[in-house]
Nucleic acid binder design. Structure first.
Lengths: 230, 230
DNA sequence: TGAATAGTGTCTATAAGACATTATCCA
DNA sequence: TGGATAATGTCTTATAGACACTATTCA
């Protein structure tokens, strides 16, 4: 049996998030002025799967990511796959959507004429079904933030506990109680002290520097969520 | 810009689970004797996306599902997408994997010569990367069982609480404490009494019949897990 | 009446949330 | 020394888990 069927257009789209000015921001790329559909529009960065050069879907995503951000991804996760006859005017189109996180300082050599960061909450209007892909990404971030080390991949390798709280608050879109958060993070063994160092910036007491106890994503049995008033 | 690239082979594979003889069982289909790869092998049911007749990926999956089981799916969820150059000898192949649940009594007209049910724990050896897809499916079932109504889609529309406990135990692969489970299910408002009816089979006290309070999957904030010794 | 299964009540250890207190820096 | 921020301590309440107990059927 041979593959005689006409096959769909196959692309990947990436929701790239970073922490900028204290809030989650989304990377948009501008489509070519002579694109067949949505010329000049700002959309999620994405591209065709090149089966001659990409060995896997992940390769495709990392290539797209490198092309648009000039950097390496800190965290990459598959989100969902959308395939139907109507989402792209060019025909039956299948897109594998990914979530990528990276700390702001790892973004280098951005082509500022063709790419830009925008706040992700509220989510801007986007062509195709990109808005619902972003919504899926935010749901995933929020859900994983409540029981894993995911938001830490938006920070540098070493960070302070107040910084960690801030990035969790940005990911969860919710205020956290400092004391409870510290207790849970300690219980889970998520972070370890980065030896002896402390920050010296700012006015108040300097904070201890930490790093993740494991380089990969850690899942916890218990929840890190702890809402606060104020 | 036109899609000039050669595109991958695009298929779907479905992990179909049902509750049979008190345990989770997996549907396997036998490949054609003259198939180009893995002829005659038992694999996950799957098939090519037909862009001329399938309006969406879900359509593809439901078509495959109907063809193999003769029934309608009770619950369908996308699992993950695998795409690389090596998984299929025919070339760069992309497969969108799905999880499907249905109650045993809804399986009708199974072609018993070309399909069969096998226990999913432990998972049998399967060709391609189907074993890891099944592993992903079991992880998903287990994870969702702990905080959603997912396992109930393996039961008929009305069921007793002992039946519900049994299907959760099968999904979680873990014993549950009856009292705690009842309390949580009640707190979450997951089920409502199916008016007045009771079962009459068996020896002991007849059980109250229930149905899901909502026809769709319900997510709960809290966990339904409650391990028991025994 | 007793075996079997369904369903309820209750105790205890633990963990979450709230918030008060202490610690350490700089100006 | 006081303002600012970091870090710790402690109290209260909610809930998970464990398990004992009661209820209802049939043989």
């Amino acid at each position: 049996m041979t593959n005689d069927f006409p096959t769909p257009i196959v692309t990947t789209d990436v929701v790239v998030l970073t922490l900028k000015d204290g809030s989650l921001q989304l990377l948009l790329a501008q489509r070519a002025a002579d694109a067949e559909v949505a010329p000049g529009a700002w959309t999620l960065p994405g591209g065709f799967v090149h089966i001659d050069t990409d060995r896997s879907l992940d390769d495709t995503v990392r290539r797209v990511f490198r092309t648009k951000t000039g950097g390496e991804v800190a965290y990459l996760e598959q989100l969902c796959t959308i395939g139907n006859a109507t989402r792209d005017l060019r025909g039956w189109s299948l897109s594998v959507a990914y979530l990528a996180l990276l700390p702001e300082h790892k973004v280098v050599g951005l082509d500022s004429a063709r790419t830009r960061w925008v706040p992700v909450r509220p989510c801007p209007d986007l062509p195709f079904d990109h808005r619902s892909i972003v919504a899926t990404a935010l749901d995933r971030v929020r859900s994983k933030a409540s029981y894993s080390s995911l938001p830490a991949f938006l920070l540098p390798d070493t960070f302070t506990l107040p910084e960690l709280i801030a990035v969790y608050e940005a990911a969860l879109d919710q205020q956290l109680d400092q004391s409870t958060f510290r207790r849970k993070v300690a219980e889970q063994g998520m972070i370890i002290k980065a030896r002896g160092e402390r920050t010296h910036a700012g006015k108040g007491r300097p904070a201890q520097l930490y790093k993740l106890s494991r380089p990969a994503l850690q899942d916890f049995g218990r929840v890190l969520l702890c809402s606060r008033e104020s």
